[in-house]
């Protein structure tokens, strides 16, 4: 289990800090969606979660050990799929053989299944594949390592539309109760229905850190509604098919969460979101 406590960080001493006291606990069994505008520090937070960047204040610990030491016993529990990376000029097979040995729970059968799901071949030279292809190889490998913590930075960037659908399938089948997956993205549509906890990063803090079920019990999301229906809406947009809106949810009736709308609402009215979700989870 990964624990982030009172994280503070800034690139330059005088500028406004990137992180101003962030605390977050990553529990096994959930897919975390780390959302935020471009340049807000999503990647930086992911790097800090795996010890590639060091906080100025606060701690990031995995099972009680500071990740910044980058001890092998910590690193073998984390897999990071960066936004941009290079793969070595070797075959898929050689890559798997040389890299899987570092991960005690690696499963070759799973890897082959994910390759099949992505319709990937055992190419001879990984370095020569496109960025989208590289991502699919690395995501397959990452899931097959079965590390308790899997971090992905904008994983669907560079993937074509069929690949995004395959990506969702692979994540859904690669997920289990021992794992936690943290996905940073600003393309929430790609991951709709995949995320079960939402973390919105804004203004150096975590504006929201809640389970989707908890969010829909506080807020009601409607689509294609008439103007009268959305009266008293917290947030609404007009579309061709009528109004899409977020309404208060006094009855606790469940509705399908629209992450994009929630995100826009949170960014526009951060104070309201904080007020609504001020009470700790029951």
């Amino acid at each position: 289990m990964l624990q982030i406590e009172n994280l503070e960080f800034s690139y330059h001493k005088k500028k406004t800090p990137i992180f101003n006291g962030i605390s977050l606990t990553i529990q096994p069994g959930s897919v975390y969606g780390l959302l935020g505008k471009n340049g807000i520090g999503k990647s930086t937070l992911l790097y800090m979660m795996c010890g590639l960047m060091f906080p100025h204040k606060g701690h990031v610990t995995l099972d009680g050990v500071e990740v910044r030491h980058r001890y092998p016993e910590t690193l073998e529990k984390i897999f990071l799929v960066p936004e941009e990376f290079d793969l070595p000029a070797i075959s898929v097979d050689a890559y798997v053989r040389r890299n899987s040995v570092f991960y005690p729970h690696f499963d070759r059968e799973q890897f082959d299944r994910y390759l099949a799901d992505f319709e990937l071949e055992n190419v001879k030279n990984l370095a020569k594949t496109s960025m989208g292809q590289k991502k699919k190889y690395l995501v397959s490998f990452a899931l097959a390592t079965n590390t308790p913590l899997l971090l992905m930075d904008e994983p669907t960037n560079g993937m074509d539309i069929p690949s995004k659908s395959q990506f969702r399938k692979v994540i859904a089948s690669g997920m289990n109760e021992q794992k936690s997956i943290v996905i940073s993205t600003h393309q929430v549509r790609d991951l709709e229905n995949m995320i079960d906890r939402i973390d919105i990063l804004e203004g150096g803090r975590l504006l929201l850190d809640r389970d989707t079920a908890d969010i829909t019990s506080h807020l009601r999301f409607v689509k294609g509604a008439s103007e009268a229906d959305v009266e008293g809406a917290l947030y609404s947009v007009s579309t061709i098919a009528g109004y899409s809106a977020i309404l208060p949810n006094p009855t606790g009736e469940e509705s399908p969460l629209d992450i994009e709308m929630l995100f826009n609402y949170a960014i526009e009215k951060p104070a309201e979101i904080e007020r609504i979700f001020a009470n700790p989870v029951k």
């Binding site: 399938k169 859904a172 089948s173 229905n193 995949m194």
Partner: peptide, 14 residues
């Protein structure tokens, strides 16, 4: 659960 989650591309918890 996981097979079905992959089929409909939805989180396994759902």
């Amino acid at each position: 659960v996981r097979e079905y989650a992959a089929l409909v591309e939805v989180n396994a918890n759902t």
